[in-house]
Amino acid sequence: MTNPSDYKYVRSHEWLCYVDDDRVRVGITDFAQQAMGDLVFVNLPIVGDMTTAGEPLCDVESVKSVEDIFAPVSGEVTAINEELMDHPELINAAPYDAWIAEISHITDTEELLDAAAYEAVCAEEE
């Protein structure tokens, strides 16, 4: 699967896409979902949570592991993708459609990579 060129990426394998200037949607990359295998649960954040760039936002579970999802930006969670509560497999099926949370009122941002730079990071890890 190719990483969409209009998305941005961080080294901890989350993607973000700008909905407008002060609002992003966040998810995990294809590389991350493949590494974790079949996801069985997404422990979604709560609307109103404040996030800090580079700090855990929430976590996702596979059968035998749990991984933190890191917030790529500092801000406030203004929406969550509730569909994932009952259907975590959507992340495996279409990681770039299955957004986890929407973060607004952004005050800080991690180092963002474009698709090519992110692919280089993945190649290094493989």
């Binding site: 069985v40 649960f41 579970e61 596979s62 059968v63 035998k64 592991s65 749990v66």
Partner: peptide, 9 residues
């Protein structure tokens, strides 16, 4: 639901 438990979390 073992991902709740201490040996994983």
């Amino acid at each position: 639901l073992q991902a709740r438990e201490q040996h994983i979390r």
